[in-house]
Design a protein around this nucleic acid. Structure first.
Lengths: 261, 261
DNA sequence: TATTTCAGGATTATGCATTTTTATTTGCAA
DNA sequence: TTGCAAATAAAAATGCATAATCCTGAAATA
């Protein structure tokens, strides 16, 4: 009965195979986009109505998101959106630099023709995607964010280490949450196109030292822009209702999960 | 009403604040100890009876464990124990070497007196804990495994980076699962005490290069011993019932979680 | 003013109904 | 009689609604 499908592009439409997974994906996307304020209480019933699913699905989605560090679970008090903090962003950026360096060096050493091709393709897509969704508000467009993610993932993919790529993706997603939180970005004219192009060129030229240096500068600069935006201007651009809680106070983000049995 | 408690040791008895968390902790402990065979089907009802909780609690525990990579979730087909593979162990070990190196260098650079003290204490505890639970079977005792974990965690803790320590703990736990899977360890006389002591000495002496070299050798040697044990002797020592599924075939372990919304 | 009690609300846990998957059996044809 | 396929039955996973437990906050009392 399986009809022959001529060609299938890489999953153009997501099929939420189960309500649980659908709720998880939607909630996760809204969390990453900072549609919920950090520290905000996530009431089960509200989420049930919002996503039109039962409490089981919502609870399961929240559990997974909690173990990923995007929400925090207090034993008998329900769930809250994981807080953001300057210290956590600083730590996150530093660790991310280290991990991206490992990926980059591995990719330069082991990457083959397929990897090179994907990097070139991703760079092309990125440089031909409009950066700003709202020129006045200076906020990135959804398409640009996606192309940016694909570009960085393509660079790292060459290392061929599933675990390293998994760690990298984790850190990238958490960084994205900070970027989404930041308001209109500072006016310093940053030639993102040039940064990405130079990183790609140094990488494809197998110049590890230069590639790593450029990548670190790229990541630290991004963090600096975000911090400037948050500390200077208004913190939240269009984050939803409810109490904003703590926005940027120094506290740790990824709390340790129970190791002892 | 809070009665004054004279002294409280570090949580001698776990208080399962909720049934869900209790089931999660128990299941996780059994997973890490390889009480379930890799690839084995995890039936909800069986787990309900085994842990004496409802299906919600079990489902939630499985969700969290799935996002941690200890079980895999197939959309409408339930959950299975995450498979193990030689390739995955190899990758895991390599990445772990890199992460432990980052932790170690950071700790040597930034660790203070408190860190040094904890390292010395952990080394003392480790060297005075009996290694073998069953001398004949050559299997580590529970106490030794715990002391070993504390020792390595103490070494890394000095780096002071929450994110780096989180990544390290993740990799350590997955490595533990492989160690628990391996049968009786090979007869090569390995002076574990000496290895740990030399690592600690080099670290406390702020000798980064030597400490990192020794740590890498330590980790790679552990992996080699495990591989020898698995490839040579009988694969599973006392793993529970049910079909063992695939034990050691080359496949990837940490499958990517859905990034696209 | 501090403590206690009580009501409201939210989270947690359970059991059942629905839907999908899988295994077995039956029927038909070679 | 054997092999394949469809249909049926069993089992399991998913989703939902209800019940019980716990926390939060305010009112009342000492």
């Amino acid at each position: 009965m399986t009809r022959i499908t001529p060609f299938v592009m890489a999953k153009p439409m997501e099929s939420p195979t189960s309500l649980t997974h659908g709720a998880y994906a939607k909630l996760r996307a809204q969390l990453l986009a900072c549609r919920f304020a950090p520290g905000e209480k996530l009431k089960i019933d509200d989420l049930c109505r919002r996503f039109e699913v039962g409490s089981s699905a919502v609870r399961e989605a929240l559990s997974r998101l909690a173990s990923e560090g995007f929400v925090v679970s207090e034993p008998q008090r329900g769930f809250r959106v994981a807080p953001l903090s300057v210290d956590a962003l600083s730590d996150l950026t530093n660790v991310r630099c280290s991990i991206e360096e490992l990926c980059l060096r591995g990719a330069i050493e082991k990457g083959g023709i397929e990897w090179q091709t994907q990097v070139v393709a991703a760079l092309h897509r990125l440089s031909h995607t409009p950066v700003w969704a709202d020129k006045a508000a200076r906020r990135y467009s959804e398409e640009y964010a996606r192309a940016h993610e694909i570009f960085h993932e393509a660079l790292a993919a060459g290392c061929g280490s599933p675990w390293l790529l998994h760690l990298r993706a984790t850190l990238y997603n958490h960084s994205e949450r900070y970027r989404a939180f930041s308001g209109p970005l500072s006016k310093v004219d940053r030639d993102l196109d040039r940064e990405h192009r130079e990183i790609a060129e140094a990488t494809l030229a197998r110049n590890s030292e230069r590639a790593v240096t450029l990548m670190n500068q790229h990541l630290q600069m991004t963090t600096k822009v975000i911090l400037d935006s948050v500390l200077a201007g208004e913190p939240a651009p269009e984050s939803a209702k409810a109490r904003p809680g703590d926005a940027h106070l120094p506290e740790s983000l990824p709390r340790k999960r129970g190791a002892p049995a």
